[in-house]
Measured scan of single mutants.
Amino acid sequence: GETKIIYHLDGQETPYLVKLPLPAERVTLADFKGVLQRPSYKFFFKSMDDDFGVVKEEISDDNAKLPCFNGRVVSWLVSA
């Protein structure tokens, strides 16, 4: 499998796309960081919350699996 991750960088209009050679349910924050090489950023991901619906959730645990929608991951990188 392959996972497409779209990421928005510090408010830039056009998002970036990276592809990881892993199925979406196995991709972790560490996998994503390894491709990006951007150490001083906070990582937020499109996520579903039972109370609020669609939210941007910050993930900082490198072992955390990334939230996935239709085989895609959507993220926002914010300068720390």
Rank of each mutant, 00 (worst) to 15 (best):
G1E: 13
E2R: 05
E2D: 06
E2F: 09
T3F: 07
T3I: 00
T3L: 02
I5V: 09
I5N: 00
I6T: 11
I6H: 11
I6N: 07
Y7F: 09
H8D: 00
H8T: 06
H8A: 02
L9D: 06
D10S: 03
D10Y: 00
G11I: 00
G11A: 08
G11D: 14
Q12H: 14
Q12T: 11
Q12K: 11
E13Y: 06
E13C: 09
E13N: 09
E13Q: 12
E13H: 07
T14L: 08
T14W: 06
T14V: 11
T14D: 13
P15N: 06
P15W: 06
L17V: 15
L17H: 15
V18R: 03
V18F: 03
V18M: 09
K19R: 11
K19I: 15
K19D: 06
K19M: 13
L20C: 04
P21Y: 03
P21E: 09
P21D: 09
P21S: 09
L22H: 04
L22G: 01
L22Q: 07
P23W: 01
P23Q: 02
A24R: 06
A24E: 07
R26Q: 14
R26K: 13
R26S: 12
V27M: 04
T28S: 02
T28Y: 03
T28W: 01
T28N: 03
L29Y: 08
L29M: 03
L29S: 06
L29I: 03
A30N: 07
A30F: 01
A30W: 06
F32Y: 06
F32S: 04
F32M: 04
F32W: 05
F32K: 00
K33F: 04
G34C: 10
V35N: 08
V35M: 09
V35D: 01
V35P: 01
V35C: 12
L36V: 10
L36H: 00
L36C: 05
Q37I: 10
Q37R: 11
Q37D: 15
R38C: 14
R38M: 13
P39F: 00
S40F: 10
S40C: 13
S40P: 09
Y41R: 02
Y41P: 06
F43Q: 00
F43E: 02
F44T: 03
F45M: 01
K46E: 15
S47K: 15
S47T: 15
S47R: 15
S47V: 15
M48R: 14
M48G: 15
M48T: 15
M48L: 12
M48H: 13
D50W: 07
D50T: 12
D50G: 13
D50N: 11
D50S: 13
D51P: 13
D51G: 12
D51Y: 09
F52I: 13
G53R: 15
G53Q: 15
G53L: 09
G53H: 15
V55T: 14
V55Y: 14
V55F: 14
E57V: 15
I59Y: 04
I59S: 03
I59E: 03
I59A: 07
S60A: 10
S60G: 05
D61K: 00
D61P: 05
D61R: 05
D61S: 05
D61Q: 11
D61V: 03
D62E: 07
N63V: 05
N63P: 08
A64V: 06
A64E: 09
A64M: 09
A64Y: 01
A64Q: 12
K65H: 13
L66P: 05
L66D: 00
L66M: 04
P67T: 02
C68Y: 10
C68T: 14
C68K: 00
C68E: 04
C68L: 13
F69S: 10
N70M: 08
N70S: 05
N70H: 10
G71P: 03
G71K: 00
G71S: 06
R72H: 14
V73A: 06
V74C: 04
V74P: 00
V74L: 07
V74H: 09
V74W: 09
S75Q: 00
S75F: 02
W76H: 00
W76M: 03
W76Q: 00
W76I: 00
L77I: 08
L77N: 02
S79E: 12
S79Q: 09
S79F: 06
S79K: 10
A80N: 14
A80G: 13
A80Y: 08
